[in-house]
């Protein structure tokens, strides 16, 4: 069930990138997609258990797998910085193309 939700999020994000006309909407859709991927990592980590993997005395509980969580932290940071870069670029583009319609921009900057 959870997996289905995660995949649905990813797919919705992907279709957003594909079908939305506006560049800002496309970027938001990409954010949705990357949220889905992050959720997938969290879900994979939680397969063995959901207890926070911090060693505090001997307790015999099912810990979550720390590796995917650590990995996805890196990916979150990278995704965030890429989004910041894209938004800056879109801000600059918006001065001359206030509608930010992909099709119009593509038409304009064609070689």
């Amino acid at each position: 069930m959870l997996y289905a939700c995660v995949y649905a999020t990813i797919l919705l994000g992907f279709f957003g990138i594909l079908l939305k006309e506006n560049l800002v909407m496309k970027i938001i859709a990409m954010d949705v997609m990357s949220t889905g991927v992050i959720a997938l990592f969290v879900l994979v980590a939680a397969r063995g258990g959901t207890y926070t993997p911090i060693l505090n005395g001997a307790s015999d509980v099912a810990y979550a797998d720390p590796v995917p969580q650590a990995v996805i932290l890196t990916a979150i940071v990278i995704g965030f910085s890429i989004q910041a870069l894209m938004l800056v670029a879109v801000m600059k583009l918006a001065r001359d193309n206030p509608t930010l319609e992909t099709r119009a921009i593509e038409e304009e900057y064609r070689p």
């Binding site: 990357s34 990592f41 995917p68 890429i82 894209m86 670029a89 583009l93 193309n97 900057y109």
Partner: peptide, 26 residues
């Protein structure tokens, strides 16, 4: 503006591809 659009397009395609890659890695 033109270089911005070319770069944005590149980053968009590459980042979407890398999201698929990341799913595969998971």
């Amino acid at each position: 503006d033109r270089s911005l659009w070319v770069a944005l397009r590149y980053l968009f395609v590459s980042n979407t591809a890398m999201l698929f890659y990341l799913m595969g890695a998971a």
